[in-house]
Design a protein around this nucleic acid. Structure first.
Lengths: 340, 340
DNA sequence: TAATTTAGTGCAATCGATTACTCTTATCCT
DNA sequence: AGGATAAGAGTAATCGATTGCACTAAATTA
């Protein structure tokens, strides 16, 4: 009695065919009301559960989407996923999550595995841009599986994306530091093969330019998104002849490390050095010396990505939709960059 | 050329049958080496992708597991999920995540949807214990779908679980406060229909008892896991005739709120009041006044839950495994509870 | 009343992969 | 050389749900 009940079992019980049962369960108008009710009742009585796998095989739709992120245990990605799940669950989609750990091999494997699993779409934040990956990603497009990038994207024909305006974010954060009187602003950047970091840096540079500040290559350090990396970056910056008086970090964790290192050396924040982070991690708000940061509205980003996916799915025309949604970053200006 | 290639297509190309192709792809020894290689080569050339749905339908194994959590955008749950994914990906399982938002209706819906999707197992942290839910959860067991609780469990026959020793955690945290000289220790608890909160509270009580401190009902406040709730709790505690000199909170967020409220009122931490949190959220470590907290090793918990699931799956004997894994909590003693 | 429509079901193929069973050949042994 | 065995491949059923087409009987129309 525990073993799976199928429409055939119901059919046998009622002495009708599975076709009729299927139609009844799907409210097909060709079925008499009496039969329909009888089937529904019997199905409930027998504890019938629809086998989605069979349905998926037949329809070619798995009602699953794959999500690929570098890692899920980061506030940003977890929030994006939350947004995706909340948007897709009500319309009957399940969310499969996979992590790459920034490893391009795992990224390829994940994509392939998701395609094999017949997901109806892939939402991903790219980890790595390499030839091998390009090939696999192109496979997705070739197989007509909707692909949506969020946050970390890659310019590709036929692929939609949801990002924030990283250029603007970099520009505004830097401008904020300038307005606080910073003249020598350093920038902790990330993996420059990724558009987000390129754009944040460009915004930073443009803000300097617009305010007649010189751009100094020595002030730009490639830094991992970790507290330690932030500390090390500051160590290097303090070794320069003219150390910076402002830091725009493209990672909150690096910003935190920077702050810790600066304070340990007796440098006052924001008096001597102002710091601006990126990502609006929860701790930036919680610190006694709260850290200014750029909010990327991850929840909204996830929701948007899901919506774009649904649009693609429901797009009946032959013309492929290629939508580029750009969300506005929001500055959270806090103590670490507020001198007045 | 973009459309799905099946084994029938390969078969037609090579003028053999699909059965042979299938055997060749599965390294069935009954196939000649020559044919095998030919098939493999052709499959690669035609960009063949195995349709897991079809395979799943036939085998009755979806190679998907469902994970149900209250919400994914919490460091704890995200880390658990990370652990689950890392353990299951290498063995070919996909992880479907769903959230309940602590809503019992959504919880039931999610369970049902996952069962319909034919998941091979469900790993969940229970949100709510009610009659309706009991019924649905029992369904899982009845259908012989391995069910593993993590963190928030419910005692049920035939169901495995991975938790930390919450009693011990509550005991040790409270003991730490006592050792720091606290005599009047308050406890911010959670939803007392959940075992975790009951056990933490019991540990707290036992520690008081063992150290000849009186248990005062007024010192126990049911508090949501949020900064605001923590603040409110402190407001109420300070209204008592003899306010506490120590707080053991079963939530880091509430602990943070408590600290903020106390400090705003000029109460010194840890001098006047010591505070101990629960969960080891990242910010507890990052604060200048770092917050003592109980670490639940979420990554390990996720890994363990996944391992227990795999054991169940691979258990060929008819005897059901019912495994209760209890991890040891680890105190992270920090400034908020260190007077010396 | 005869012809035609319609409501309600059944039949059987399909989605793609797997596998127990059957059937050819080729090889082996005495 | 004749029969036994094995190697390699084909046939067809199966997993569960869906759906175009066919069919029957009742209802409608002329």
């Amino acid at each position: 009695m525990s073993d799976k009940v199928t429409i055939y079992d119901i059919a046998k019980t009622l002495n009708i065919t599975a076709a009729t049962v299927s139609r009844a369960l799907n409210n097909n108008p060709k079925i008499s009301e009496a039969t329909r009710l009888l089937v529904l009742e019997t199905a409930a009585k027998m504890n019938y559960k629809q086998n989605k796998l069979a349905q998926s095989l037949r329809s070619g739709k798995s009602h699953n989407v794959g999500v690929i992120v570098p890692r899920i245990d980061s506030n940003f990605f977890a929030s994006v996923i939350r947004g995706i799940e909340e948007e897709l669950r009500p319309v009957g989609y399940h969310v499969i999550i996979t992590q790459t750990n920034e490893d391009e091999v795992r990224q390829s494997e994940n994509i392939t595995a998701l395609l094999n699993a017949q997901v109806d779409g892939i939402l991903m934040s790219i980890s790595n841009v390499s030839e091998a990956n390009d090939h696999v990603i192109n496979n997705v497009v070739k197989q007509n599986v909707p692909l949506i990038f969020f946050d970390r994207k890659k310019e590709m024909p036929g692929v939609s994306s949801v990002t924030i305006n990283d250029f603007e974010a970099g520009y505004l954060a830097t401008k904020n530091l300038i307005e606080q009187g910073c003249k020598r602003i350093a920038h902790l950047t990330g993996d420059l093969s990724l558009e987000i970091f390129i754009n944040r840096k460009k915004g930073y540079q443009k803000a300097l330019l617009d305010n007649d500040l010189v751009f100094n290559e020595d002030y730009v350090l490639q830094t991992k998104s970790s507290v330690d990396a932030g500390r090390q970056a500051v160590q290097r910056l303090l070794g320069l002849n003219t150390p910076p008086d402002g830091i725009f970090s493209s990672s909150d964790f690096a910003a935190l490390g920077a702050i810790q290192e600066l304070r340990e050396r007796g440098i006052k924040i924001p008096k001597d050095v102002c710091v601006f982070g990126f990502g609006n991690e929860p701790f930036t708000r919680f610190m006694e010396l709260s850290i200014s940061s750029v909010d990327q509205s991850p929840l909204e980003m996830g929701r948007m990505a899901a919506k774009v996916f649904l649009e693609q799915i429901n797009n009946t025309s032959k013309v492929k939709i290629e939508k580029k949604v750009v969300l506005n970053p929001e500055l959270q200006i806090r103590k670490s960059s507020t001198r007045i």
